[in-house]
Write a protein that binds this DNA or RNA. Structure first.
Length: 823
DNA sequence: GGTCCTGCGTTACC
DNA sequence: ACCGGTAACGCAGGACC
């Protein structure tokens, strides 16, 4: 039998002590298919140099006799083969050791302890990674598959008959084929419960949304709405939930925060009702693995918690202040959750069930639409990193980078480095932090006619240009090697040297860098969600590489490499600052990979010519780029001291587009009033080039504050709770409010945004703490005029006016010949 | 009882 | 434990006068 097949979910199983891959996907006809494939399980014993051939043969014989029994399972070494391989860029003889069973590779590896063995490697890769590497059956890519149809076959213990698929194939041949668009079957779900404590109270309703498919399952109330199905009790509802999913037959089951809430909740409630939540295609129940975060896996169906993907991969493209479903959906879809106020109360009393059903349905609708919207990003990242969608949708940045590297090692005949063990991680974490990038302290002022240059993927281009990596680091200075700038490392001034022979790590990055450029161009030429997603995926990987090298959990960790990259970053940033000054420009500001400067008498063309000249002199693949030309820019003083503040500036380009960085305007822990006022002031100053209109505006705002004309929603301050309440040493207003909320019975989780305002407080007998005046938004009270003037609005604008030598407080007092308090 | 400094805490930039 | 260093700045806590 021959079919076109796209792999989606990867798994493996044991049959007669051997490991087999079990891959679920679709055929081009939309059939759900399982394919079964044998996969050789092996790892490597890398040998010390000058071990004699005779000795090697002896070792191979010994290794081939290793046998392990674990319960009923017997694991053996099947065979061994000798190869010339590279490991960390050096060539070695290595014995490839084939074992029967994946699960025992680790134990067998630990039995190979000959003194001639330098390292044992690749026993710590997952089965799926090994399989994909070996068979090149990449996720979400179409293949032409030839195989033997299993039909109630005895082979593999009748696996096909217990599997909920259209057919099951035993693979004979995998061939590449043309790619056709693939749209997965997505089903979104969301539950509503009586309380929020995990599994404690019944699930009231469950919504399910797919293509032309909308359902709410409940047992609480009958409804006139056709999408609502009412059952006798929670048990029946849960049973129907499983049935509905099986019937809809989705490739992807998606929720929002469903790893942490919906799926584990469902599992507990199923247990309480003594029923099986057998969602898996093999009728297995969801399995949860505990890391820092709970992860819910369903066999054969890719369970995605969209929040996790958005948190690690997508948040950087979002403006939303929180990653709540409501805000993210509004930003990406222009659609919100429905307002259902009974949920905001601590106890649900006689809710309007019709509204509640609608509310529940809407959450799944949003999750469904968001998944469709983010599908190009999930798809591209999965194809590029070459790990299953399930992993990609939850992977952190280091994980994405590392898997990208692992799946690109074979070109260099490289054996993968091992994952650091616990002890090693501990050691790495104790290492002193290395010095980071350089930030140039600006001289405060309003500047005209500016431009910004920045380096393209600076860290990555440095790694490639100077061949920097764990494997290319030389122990001591060598002739004809790359030399890092002087840097401090372990409390000593030193330099690091890197071989000139290109290493596999920089070479993989070089390819990544080139692809990043190519796909950015492709997107510019042909902008659509797919080209955008591809461009973004490479951008993300490229931007995360340097952080990866310095991350304690990385296989290719090297603090020496990381410190060297940063030393180059500082050097080149300073070099460009100087070069611009030398060429008759004035450098105003710089941060890491960018330099802002005044053009002075120079034209745009002269500036671009200079850019080209600089580029000709830059080493390797390093490249300086024009970010933009700007009409004006403003830099202010720090609130304390008379120096210019770093990481705070505002610019207006030639098309009157304003870019604000670091100012309170962009900080969510300031009230809207202060943020909006500052934004307006910056806008007026940047557009007009002077402070006149801004002064008129601030006077108007101050008057409004004084007259209590500001609505409460403009005065709310939002601060995130970053740790459990008990761990706070310093009780700041938001901690105080969180405690108050907890006393009221409102559940407080880490990560929650705490909202409050500052009210007037009459008893002024002792030193007044702000937290004593903090109130919940629904607590009655008058806002504290003095606080909002002196701690919010005026501080947000005073150093802007100071650029024009105006002391805003004095200006306001002087003008009116009155004290501020009488204003 | 006021003033100043320091550390905690959050959020931003790159 | 899940990319990391640089930086601003409010508030509380405590030393000091």
């Amino acid at each position: 039998m021959e079919i076109k097949f796209i792999p989606i979910d990867y798994d493996y199983f044991d049959w007669k002590s051997k490991s087999y891959a079990k891959i679920i996907g679709r055929s081009d006809k939309g059939k759900r298919v399982c394919i079964i494939d044998a996969c050789e399980i092996y790892f490597w014993a890398i040998l010390n140099s000058n071990v004699s051939s005779k000795k090697i043969k002896q070792m191979q014989k010994k290794i081939e006799k290793i046998e392990i029994q674990k319960g009923t399972r017997i694991s053996r070494v099947l065979k061994t083969e000798l190869y010339n391989k590279n490991y960390l860029g050096k060539s070695y003889k290595a014995i490839k050791i084939f074992v029967t069973n994946f699960k025992d590779a680790h134990s067998i590896a630990s039995k190979i302890d000959f003194k001639e063995v330098y390292k044992r490697r690749e026993y710590d890769l997952t089965f799926t990674t090994k399989y994909i590497l070996q068979k090149k059956l990449n996720p979400l890519t179409w293949y032409q598959i030839t195989g033997e149809l299993l039909n109630n076959s005895e082979e593999f213990g009748g696996i096909d008959s217990n599997l909920d698929v259209d057919f099951c194939l035993k693979i004979k041949e995998i061939k590449k084929t043309e790619q056709i668009p693939f749209k997965p079957k997505i089903l979104a779900y969301d539950i509503e419960t009586e309380g929020i404590e995990m599994g404690k109270t019944p699930i009231l309703m469950i919504s399910l949304v797919g293509e032309n498919y909308r359902k709410v399952l409940t047992w609480k109330k009958k409804s006139r709405k056709s999408y609502v199905e009412t059952f006798k009790d929670e048990e029946e509802m849960l049973e129907e939930f499983v049935k509905s999913i099986k019937k809809y037959d989705p490739d992807i089951l998606v929720g929002y925060y469903s790893d942490g809430f919906d799926l584990p909740y469902l599992k507990i409630r199923a247990e309480k009702n003594k029923i099986k939540l057998n969602l898996g295609l093999d009728n297995s129940q969801p399995k949860f693995s505990r890391g820092r975060l709970l992860t819910g896996k369903i066999k054969g169906i890719t369970h995605i918690d969209l929040l996790r993907f958005i948190q690690t991969v997508y948040a950087q493209y979002l403006k939303s202040e929180t990653l709540s479903l409501n805000e993210v959906a509004f930003e990406l879809l222009g659609e919100k959750k429905l307002d259902f106020s009974p949920l905001k109360q601590t106890k649900l009393k006689n809710p309007n069930w019709e509204d509640f059903f609608k509310y529940n349905l809407q959450d799944s609708i949003l999750a469904y639409k968001l998944t469709e919207k983010l599908w190009p990003d999930l798809l591209e990242l999965t194809k590029i990193v070459q790990e299953p969608l399930f992993n990609i949708s939850r992977a952190g940045l280091s994980n994405l980078v590392e898997n990208y590297i692992i799946h690109n090692l074979s070109k260099y005949n490289e054996i993968a480095e091992k994952h650091p063990i616990h002890e090693e991680i501990g050691k790495r974490r104790e290492q002193k932090r290395v010095e980071g990038a350089f930030v140039f302290r600006p001289i405060p002022g309003l500047y005209e006619n500016l431009a910004i240059f920045d380096f393209t993927s600076m860290h990555t281009s440095i790694i490639v240009s100077f061949n920097i990596s764990k494997a290319t680091l030389l122990e001591k200075k060598q002739k004809d090697s790359y030399e890092s700038p002087e840097l401090e490392f372990e409390n000593k001034k030193t330099k690091f040297y890197f071989s000139k022979k290109p290493g596999f790590f920089p070479l993989i990055l070089k390819e990544l860098f080139e692809k990043r450029k190519r796909f950015k161009q492709e997107y510019k030429k042909n902008p659509n969600p797919l080209t955008k997603a591809r461009s973004n995926a490479f951008k993300l990987l490229s931007a995360s590489i340097h952080g990866y090298q310095g991350f304690f959990g990385a296989r290719y960790y090297s603090l020496e490499a990381s410190a060297s990259v940063l030393a180059f970053v500082r050097k080149f940033n300073k070099q460009i600052i100087e070069e611009m000054n030398k060429q008759g420009y004035n450098s105003i500001y710089a941060d890491t990979d960018s330099v802002a400067f005044k053009l002075n008498q120079h034209t745009k063309k002269q500036t671009l010519d200079l850019l080209e000249k600089i580029n000709q002199q830059l080493p390797g693949i390093m490249e300086l780029d024009l970010e933009d030309f700007y009409k004006r820019g403003i830099w202010v003083t720090k609130r304390t001291g008379e120096f210019g503040a770093k990481k705070k500036y505002a610019l207006i380009n030639k098309k009157n587009k304003i870019k604000i960085r670091g100012f309170e305007t962009v900080r969510r822990d300031w009230c809207n009033l202060a943020r909006k006022t500052q934004n307006k002031i910056l806008n007026l100053i940047l557009t007009t080039g002077n402070e006149k209109k801004a002064l008129t505006y601030i006077k108007k705002i101050i008057k409004k504050i004084k007259n209590r004309e500001i609505p409460l929603d403009q005065l709310l301050i939002k601060t995130q709770l970053k740790k459990p309440l008990s761990e706070y040493k310093s009780i700041n207003p938001h901690v105080m409010i969180a405690k108050k909320m907890q006393e009221k019975g409102i559940p407080i989780d880490v990560g929650r945004l705490i909202t409050y305002y500052i009210s007037e407080n009459k008893n002024k007998n002792k030193r007044e703490l702000i937290r004593e005046k903090a109130k919940l938004p629904d607590e009655p009270g008058k806002y504290d005029i003095e606080y909002y003037l002196n701690n919010q609005v005026l501080p947000s604008v005073e150093n802007i006016f100071e650029v024009f030598k105006i002391n805003i407080k004095e200006f306001i007092e002087g003008k009116k010949q009155k004290k501020l308090s009488e204003f």
